[in-house]
Design a protein around this nucleic acid. Structure first.
Lengths: 212, 212
DNA sequence: TAGATTGTTAATCGATTAACAATC
DNA sequence: TAGATTGTTAATCGATTAACAATC
């Protein structure tokens, strides 16, 4: 049914940039924007912008450009932002707490439905009405609440075992903050966002610039 | 002086994976590892592993494999992890606090030297001996302490102005958590690690799998 | 030695950029 | 209409994979 072209990982990153930029233009009351303007504002070649939007089967108008509202609808659709999906967090340390309190859930179309932690001293506390439960309840809660996405914010040493447990409970996508490759079945989507790897990547880029 | 080959962004990500894996093998007392074993453990083609290590001018031994300690030294060098560099955080909200308290600094070779925030109610508080200062002190402190790397953990609306200020103070690399493209001079390294973009990327991957 | 594994060039694949016809 | 901009194919570029000689 879906006649969509394949959207590359690089294109996904750019579409996220376009989304923020288009929303900003929308707030300023703009109706249309050209690939040239998007490209110049974001440091991307206009032809790359057109290719990315071509991948969305987007309908721009020659000479006028792309209708901002329509383009945003297509992007929201691609990112599955229109329906509310349930998420849970495993690990309620500093990072887990920051994530729980952040506004990313609403922004991306999620409801934070559960939080799990092993530490008895945090079980029962919570954030905005979501109580922290024991990991022993993880399997049952994910099943009964039909949660399909989970965040791993545990210590690195517990990440692999947590992933195994999550998959057995029916989780289909894992947002992994532990700095290691999770061993999970191919059909499980994993997005790694290890903070330390981000920091190291920046160190590399800074060293690179110096050396030149 | 550096005869290093160009290391691609994709290779950097893989080298981070190798690093964690090699350290684990080292803790288990292993001395050598082959590209085949690294590849199979991390889901990467062995020839890709060899190409990445070739980029490091690494000296493996045919039939034996790569010496783990030597390989790790080369990776630490590439990631500039051997010398302590100074970092600062701008924005002491939930995310800024989680970052300040995390162990990533030591891991990646940084010393968290300063924290800045605009909110008078958090100025003066702090984390592990690092006091939160007013943003009005930012320029002076970065200059006198010779800090060259900064984290932007401010609200998105303040990120661009913060970046401008940081660059004017002499910062050379920015770890940006705001979901937008920062407009900075080309020679400034920027690593974007917007949490909401990570979450959206996962949503896309999950949708992709469903559709197939 | 024979066999396994590296180092490195060549081939393939995919993503970016160029070109340009279609069209508003 | 003329000119600007999109949509889309072709060309280029870079990264991944294949091939295989060197070598331990």
């Amino acid at each position: 049914m879906s006649s969509e072209k394949k959207i590359s990982q690089a294109s996904v990153i750019r579409l996220e940039l376009y989304m923020e930029y288009l929303e900003q233009l929308g707030r300023e009351g703009r109706k249309y924007v050209t690939s040239k303007e998007i490209g110049e504002s974001l440091g991307i070649a206009a032809v790359s912008v057109r290719q990315d939007l071509f991948g969305l089967s987007s309908a721009g108008k020659p000479k006028v450009g792309y209708e901002i509202e329509k383009l945003l609808s297509l992007i929201y659709e691609v990112f599955d932002m229109n329906k509310i999906k349930k998420a849970c967090i495993v690990g309620y340390g500093n990072l887990g707490r920051a994530l729980a309190k952040s506004q990313i859930w609403e922004r991306a179309g999620y409801e934070l439905a559960a939080i799990f932690d092993n530490d008895p001293s945090v079980v029962g506390t919570g954030s905005d009405g979501v109580k922290v439960r024991s990991v022993s309840e993880l399997f049952g809660v994910i099943n009964s609440e039909e949660i399909r996405m989970a965040v791993i914010a545990t210590p690195a040493g517990e990440a692999q075992e947590t992933a195994r447990l999550l998959v057995s409970a029916g989780i289909k996508g894992i947002w992994n903050f532990a700095p290691l490759k999770l061993n999970v079945p191919d059909e499980i989507a994993v997005e790694n966002q290890s903070l330390v790897w981000g920091l190291i990547t920046l160190s590399f880029a800074m060293k690179d610039v110096e050396t030149n």
